[in-house]
Amino acid sequence: DLSALRVEEVQNVINAMQKILECPICLELIKEPVSTKCDHIFCKFCMLKLLNQKKGPSQCPLCKNDITKRSLQESTRFSQLVEELLKIICAFQLDTGLEYANSYNFAKKENNSPEHLKDEVSIIQSMGYRNRAKRLLQSEPENPSLQETSLSVQLSNLGTVRTLRTKQRIQPQRTSVYIELGSDSSEDTVNKATYCSVGDQELLQITPQGTRDEISLDSAKKAACEFSETDVTNTEHHQPSNNDLNTTEKRAAERHPEKYQGSSVSNLHVEPCGTNTHASSLQHENSSLLLTKDRMNVEKAEF
């Protein structure tokens, strides 16, 4: 173990290094160091905050020279020094078990990766560091076993998940096959086929009936047209017969005018059967003409 005197000496050296690497504005270890034209180094955030307070150039807090945003430059070497100082402080805390008085939040800088452990060898070769390295080497064999167990647990979990997924996939297939086998029997399929065939026959029977009705309507229309044509021909046949009657009536009127007047009046009210309204109107006109002729003949006879 380190003596108290040596611990104090190391602590004083760390404090001196820390004062050199402090920012003059925030009085902390410089984060993202930036250098000016006057070779003074500050935190990048502190300098941008200072420049944004005034429009135009501002003055350096140490030498009062003008500073602009374009004049600022990043210093990589200074950032490396800060990183190495942080590593020294971490090693000091691990070796002594004491917390550094002016320690900052170094938890963000710590890294437990194997590459980081290899890099620590180049920091300080001390008894405390050696003991700590031995402890780490002793704890390393235990870690692979834990990793193997965790991997086995994960693989077993994956296997159970896969088996569950396969079961879920197989179950719908089985149910679907069961439904297909038990849903419709052979008799049901035959009945469905016969039902479809009967429906098709009914459709075939319905369509000819409609065509037959249309044919019957067409035949009825044709018969009505033929009947009207026969009526017209009958009226045409009746007209010459009426003319013959008129000639006979004229002759009778010349011989017996008194008797014919009474008979002509009675004939006005008689309509021949089986004739249309057109034929009756023609008869009325003929009878009126005959009456006028008879009157003329009677007057001539009187004179």
Rank of each mutant, 00 (worst) to 15 (best):
S3R: 07
R6N: 07
V7H: 01
E8W: 11
E8Y: 08
E8D: 11
E9R: 03
E9F: 00
V10N: 00
V10I: 07
Q11V: 13
Q11H: 14
Q11Y: 15
N12G: 05
V13N: 03
N15D: 13
N15K: 04
N15E: 15
N15Y: 15
Q18K: 05
Q18E: 15
K19F: 00
I20Q: 00
I20C: 02
I20W: 05
L21P: 00
L21S: 03
P24S: 01
I25T: 00
I25N: 01
C26G: 00
E28Q: 03
E28A: 02
E28M: 03
E28C: 01
I30T: 11
I30K: 09
K31I: 05
K31M: 07
E32R: 02
E32A: 04
P33R: 01
V34T: 03
S35T: 11
S35F: 15
S35V: 15
S35W: 05
T36A: 01
K37R: 05
K37I: 12
C38Q: 00
C38L: 00
D39S: 08
H40M: 00
I41P: 01
I41M: 08
F42V: 02
C43P: 01
C43H: 02
C43Y: 00
K44C: 01
K44G: 01
K44H: 00
F45H: 14
F45P: 15
L51H: 01
L51V: 06
N52G: 07
Q53D: 07
K54N: 06
K54D: 11
K55F: 03
G56L: 06
P57I: 04
P57D: 06
P57A: 15
P57K: 14
Q59S: 06
L62E: 04
L62K: 04
C63A: 00
N65R: 15
N65V: 05
D66G: 12
D66R: 03
D66Y: 04
I67T: 04
K69C: 05
K69P: 10
L72D: 06
Q73K: 11
S75D: 15
R77H: 03
Q80S: 13
L81I: 13
V82G: 10
E84R: 08
L86R: 09
K87A: 13
K87D: 11
I88M: 06
I89T: 05
I89S: 04
C90S: 13
F92H: 00
G97S: 03
L98F: 06
E99P: 05
E99C: 07
E99L: 08
Y100L: 01
N102I: 11
S103T: 12
Y104H: 13
N105E: 08
N105R: 02
F106A: 05
K109V: 14
H116Y: 14
H116E: 13
V121F: 00
S122N: 04
Q125P: 09
Q125K: 13
S126P: 14
S126L: 11
M127H: 10
Y129H: 13
Y129D: 06
R130T: 10
N131D: 13
A133L: 08
A133S: 03
K134Q: 15
K134Y: 03
K134P: 06
K134G: 05
R135F: 04
R135N: 08
R135G: 13
L136D: 04
L137P: 13
E140M: 03
E140L: 13
E140H: 06
E140K: 10
P141I: 09
P141S: 13
E142L: 11
P144K: 07
P144R: 11
S145A: 11
L146Y: 10
Q147V: 09
E148G: 14
T149F: 01
T149Y: 00
T149A: 06
S150L: 05
S150T: 10
S150A: 09
L151Y: 03
S152P: 02
S152W: 11
V153D: 02
S156V: 07
S156F: 08
G159N: 08
G159S: 14
G159V: 04
G159A: 07
T160E: 14
V161I: 11
T163V: 02
R165W: 07
Q168P: 09
R169G: 13
R169D: 07
S183P: 02
S186D: 09
S186P: 14
D188A: 04
N191I: 03
A193H: 12
T194Y: 03
G199C: 12
G199R: 08
D200A: 05
D200Y: 06
E202C: 02
E202I: 06
E202K: 04
L203I: 02
L203P: 15
L203W: 06
L204R: 15
Q209K: 09
Q209N: 01
Q209L: 06
Q209F: 09
G210K: 10
D213H: 13
E214Y: 08
E214D: 12
L217W: 08
S219T: 10
S219W: 04
K221H: 11
K222T: 02
A223Q: 14
A224T: 13
A224S: 02
E226K: 04
F227E: 11
S228T: 13
V232K: 06
V232G: 13
V232E: 08
V232Q: 07
T233Y: 15
T233Q: 13
T233I: 14
S241N: 02
S241L: 14
S241H: 05
D244G: 05
D244N: 11
N246L: 06
N246C: 14
T247L: 07
T248D: 02
E249P: 14
K250G: 07
K250D: 09
R251S: 09
A252F: 07
E254N: 13
H256W: 13
P257S: 07
E258R: 09
K259V: 10
V265I: 07
V265L: 09
V265K: 09
L268Y: 01
V270M: 11
V270E: 08
N276Q: 13
T277C: 10
T277G: 14
S281F: 14
L282A: 09
Q283L: 05
H284G: 14
H284M: 14
E285C: 14
K293T: 12
K293A: 09
D294P: 05
D294R: 04
R295H: 11
M296V: 01
K300T: 10
A301D: 15
A301P: 08
